[in-house]
Design a protein around this nucleic acid. Structure first.
Lengths: 198, 198
DNA sequence: GCTATGTTCTAATCTGGATTAGAACTGTAG
DNA sequence: CTACAGTTCTAATCCAGATTAGAACATAGC
């Protein structure tokens, strides 16, 4: 009965280990042996669940990507109808930071390695990336339409600058120094000011 | 007489090739054979100039780091004495973007791989990184002191958010879409607004 | 032209790490 | 207790890529 559950847990353990290694060492630097050690398993065990290293790493990236997008989208949907556009952006900023900084080795793995992935994975990955980009595109456009955001900046550039700032956060954030909520608050303040008209 | 010059040119060629590969493939993904191909030379030629792959890659990172810092510092020094603090920050933003986006595979190699470097290189690299961080720290503190920047945000976080946005730019910037000057202008506008008081 | 020095090449060698083969172990159903 | 399916292990195998050895080539000073 429960062996299915046990097996699933091993699979999870390996996947999580892969995410941790991938997020720190990069795609090429991720050795199956390191993943295995972290997951407390021997390297060949990986092949019971995935057919290759590449497939395992692709799953990590996919999960990370999906998790990020889902958390942000869920946050948007949780907002009351009619929430002002800039409020929504602020909430999206918080949600994105929450995923990227809070425990998710997956999203970090997905974000940091986008450029280093082998061509075939990258292509599939790009699809999800576009979907997520659309979420932000919409947010920004609504803000401009509502006059809550300065119309005199290229929206794509603005959006990417903000996302860049968020994506870079794991590189420097130190939980000892600022609690997550504080970083979120600071970031929201700067983004709001940076984007609002005049 | 000139053989020295020719040899130096080969060395440069290899170094440049290494920077290109490193900036795209990451530390572990950089194969000497790829570097060699790009430099139009056979892999073992590398060992005539460097004692190991690691040493070559460390030089790339060091050069990239130095180039970034030097360009920004030079830009600051070129400003007339008494330039307002926020002006100076805007200029630094421009300078940083110029290096990161304009042809410098070196700085990209340095920036993107910071986290993936082997421990010993990373340690040496951290020294230079701190120096550069100091440049920005000073800029931001002067702005706060002069009342040109909102005092209600953690300066470290603010500084890192801005640098994050800048460092991420190579990931999305498309010269076809916006010329460099335009991206610089947009970024400056957002950063100014984001940081200034109220 | 001849030799010494500097530069780059071809042909090994050596190693780390992915993958495969197949044994062993676990637990469950009959 | 036995057989079987599922899971993980140990012991190869295999290959890519760094590094080394030493030949070949170039150039300059004589």
């Amino acid at each position: 009965m429960r062996e299915g559950a046990k097996s699933a847990r091993t699979r999870e353990r390996i996947l999580l280990a892969a995410a941790q290694v991938l997020s720190r060492k990069g795609y090429a630097g991720t050795r199956l042996s390191d993943v295995a050690t972290l997951a407390e398993v021997q390297a060949p065990a990986v092949y019971y669940y995935w057919t290759s290293r590449e497939e395992l790493l692709e799953e990590v990236v996919t999960v990370g990507q999906r998790a990020t997008m889902e958390h942000v989208v869920a946050s948007m949907e949780a907002l009351p109808v009619g929430t002002p556009a800039m409020e929504r952006i602020a909430r999206a900023v918080a949600a994105h930071l929450e995923v990227v900084l809070g425990r998710s080795d997956f999203s970090q793995a997905a974000i940091r390695n986008a450029g280093q992935l082998p061509a075939d994975i990258r292509e599939r990955q790009l699809v999800g990336q576009r979907e997520y980009a659309d979420v932000w595109r919409r947010l920004v456009e609504e803000a401009v339409a509502a006059g809550e955001m300065s119309p005199d900046v290229d929206t794509r550039a603005a959006r990417m600058l903000v996302l860049g700032a968020l994506n870079w956060a794991p590189e420097w954030w130190d939980p000892e120094r600022n609690p997550l909520e504080e970083v979120v608050a600071i970031t929201q303040r700067i983004v709001r000011r940076g984007l609002r008209p005049s």
